[in-house]
Design a protein around this nucleic acid. Sequence first.
DNA 1: CAAAAATGTGCGGGATCCCGCAAGACGGAG
DNA 2: CTCCGTCTTGCGGGATCCCGCACATTTTTG
Lengths: 250, 250
Amino acid sequence: MKVLIVEDDPLHRSYLNEAVRAALPECDSVIEAENGIAGERIAREYKSAHIVMDLQMSPRNGIEAARTIWKERPETRILFWSNYSDEAYVRGVSRIVPDGAAFGYVLKSASDDRLRLALRSIFIEAQCVIDREVRGMQQKSLGQTNGFSDSEYEILVDIALGLTDRAIARRRNLSLRSVQNRLQHLYEKLGVHHPSMPKHEGPKHEGPEHDEGRFNLRSRAVTVAFLRKLLNYSALERAEAELGEWLRAR
Amino acid sequence: MKVLIVEDDPLHRSYLNEAVRAALPECDSVIEAENGIAGERIAREYKSAHIVMDLQMSPRNGIEAARTIWKERPETRILFWSNYSDEAYVRGVSRIVPDGAAFGYVLKSASDDRLRLALRSIFIEAQCVIDREVRGMQQKSLGQTNGFSDSEYEILVDIALGLTDRAIARRRNLSLRSVQNRLQHLYEKLGVHHPSMPKHEGPKHEGPEHDEGRFNLRSRAVTVAFLRKLLNYSALERAEAELGEWLRAR
DNA sequence: CAAAAATGTGCGGGATCCCGCAAGACGGAG
DNA sequence: CTCCGTCTTGCGGGATCCCGCACATTTTTG
């Protein structure tokens, strides 16, 4: 059994190396890569390797690297080992994991023991292991009760990229009004109206006029999403790249 | 001599602990704190301590912690030890360092040797040490030739927060038109016009009309600033807090 | 199956935004 | 002092955004 470690921080890398050797005595070689690019390359060479991967790296973050690796070999088992449980990360990961593939998501703050358990579960039992904190996010991110539906998340990304209503309509094959409709739902869910003035609650609105401390809803929504960790840097980076492709394809 | 280490990652914390003991044999006690809150409290108890501090922590990041610590004891020497050299971080630090205080900024990617040097320079010689990569940012961030002036940065933060033109005008004591003026300068500097279509260059404009792949400049500017690391999460967090104060004060 | 909720689309209008044109204020260079 | 660049402010208008009202279609729920 071979294990590939993809992690940019040397300290964390050597820690992982030790943890893997201790947890998996049947593992006969541990290889290391220090970013997504190198990770992809080495994964191609050592085809049979299991992978432990950090999410935030540069160049090429963990999600992108995982996507190309899984595209080439969907049965690869990947354990994501990350500092954060941002919704943006969780959503990003769960969007790219192939059907039936074994993967894991544990936080760096997890105990040595939990990491050991996860390593054995995934790489030996082929069983998915997802940290409790992360699982919480996943529930919210997929169930539409409390969290955000895919279409709402989609339009959030679009306005974050700075697209015009019209541009969004073209990109998503919708009418202009539908886009604006989705925007309104988004604004409501984010609670973007009046900063802290529930003067007259109810969504009556009765007249925008020259209200006092009003926000620019579009920009405000992006920032609120950011502060709530619905978006983060790497999610934006990916979205920007996809936008670039789409623009080139037109 | 006492040294306080404020760092949330246990691996990095123990690495720092060793590095400090090795570099400063005259140091007789090394204390650790795992976030900004605890850091502030311990800094109050061990008044004479020098500090090595991470920037991104939660709750209370390094910049906020440093600000309150310096407010109580401005001669404290602080070495910032960070993963990134984002303009947002550099600007944040250089805005709060008291006159004549000794501080340092080194990246976590620096060699053991450079870290050792920095520790001795700051804590023994009271000399400022700033990594080359970071220094580059600082030049750009303060000189107005290539980087962004304070007023431009200010308005960038304001639109990122989702403020209306009118709201910005009130907050910064400007006329509406001036705000829009600054916005235009910002848009130009960020190069936010047409994604990749220098169809008719020159700022003639001649008619926005229903141009093809047009952006919503306001939102686009925020995202571009984000991707260029002029803004980041902690900068937004701070700005949001300041906005809250301002709103309450009105 | 029918009621209810969610979603897509059109129309219209008031509020904002983006920005060209132009005049006044301030400060440094000649 | 005059000239010139930078910053500020006002005016005006076309484009865009935000959103209420209305209606059709789809999905969910009871």
